[in-house]
């Protein structure tokens, strides 16, 4: 039983923390509408001029496409491979299944920098120098754990008597999987896909070691812009990314409920 005072303290802390995390985002969003070329709050009227300049940033489009390409592709591959791996680990009578599961998820616990350096060294060693492919493989290492972890959890919570129940009610085995197992696992699938997409799209520490001058992912390109010419264009771009992420989150919430993503409820 929590006392009233403890509850109040908890809420104040939570709200304070949320403000601390959200305020910078709000400031960036506000600054993106600034009419002047300095990071400033647009007190004297808003302007969209910086948004118009995003597309004219040097190398912006190739970087955006590269990032989207890598994010979508690595997510798609992770979803397939991660789901199959999860089935083998959670369901199959695989020797050492637990160890395998831990191994698969372990990159999550590794600092990105370490992972990036290690991959760079390793790729050099085996002569794997194609930037695009190296980037894809590296991002697979980053995204696969998200999918594997979520799908293993989802599968181990799945009650296989549901399939038997469906079969006795008139479903074939395949029909039972489609009618019962797929709906039950769809939230895990969507959520892990979303996590994987975001993890890849905004990955910096791993990508930085594997990109070259001609192919830079968007986060790396953005850092370069900051160093070269800090003006509100970057704030505008950040705001757009933020808005895109919000839209994705809202869609997922509609589809499966955000509480599942936070893992605070079943």
């Amino acid at each position: 039983m929590m006392t009233r005072a403890a509850i109040v303290v908890c809420w104040v802390l939570a709200i304070g923390l949320a403000l601390f995390l959200v305020l910078p985002l709000a400031v960036i969003a506000a600054a993106s509408f600034s009419p002047t070329p300095v990071f400033d709050l647009p007190l004297s009227g808003a302007s969209l001029r910086w948004y118009g300049r995003i597309g004219r940033l040097d190398g912006f489009w190739p970087s955006l496409f590269l990032s989207l390409q890598i994010a979508l592709l690595s997510t798609a591959l992770s979803l397939v491979a991660g789901t199959l791996a999860a089935i083998a680990i959670a369901r199959g009578k695989l020797p050492g299944a637990t160890a395998l599961g831990t191994l698969l998820v372990s990159p999550l616990m590794m600092p990105g920098l370490v992972l990036g350096i290690a991959l760079l060294q390793y790729f050099r060693m085996i002569g794997f120098t194609a930037t695009w492919s190296a980037l894809l493989v590296a991002h697979l290492v980053v995204t696969l754990p998200y999918v594997a972890r979520t799908m293993i959890a989802g599968l181990s919570r799945f009650d296989f008597t549901l399939i038997e129940a469906a079969r006795t009610l008139g479903c074939t085995y395949a029909g039972s999987v489609i009618r019962v197992m797929v709906p039950a696992l769809a939230p895990s699938f969507l959520i892990s896909g979303l996590f994987s997409l975001l993890a890849s799209f905004d990955n910096y520490p791993v990508s930085i070691f594997l990109t070259d001058v001609r192919s830079k992912t968007l986060p790396i390109r953005m850092l370069q812009y900051i160093e070269e010419a800090p003006d509100p264009t970057l704030a505008a771009l950040s705001t757009l990314i933020l808005a895109g992420t919000l839209v994705l989150l809202l869609i997922s919430d509609r589809l499966v409920g955000l509480h599942r993503m936070a893992g605070t409820a079943d």
Binding site: D159, T161, L162, E164, A165, R167, T168, L169, G170, C171, T172, G175
Partner: peptide, 15 residues
């Protein structure tokens, strides 16, 4: 196969 037997099953955990 079970889906063509026309049996009804009430499982222990209800399923």
């Amino acid at each position: 196969p079970p889906h063509r037997r026309n049996v009804g099953v009430v499982f222990q955990n209800y399923a």
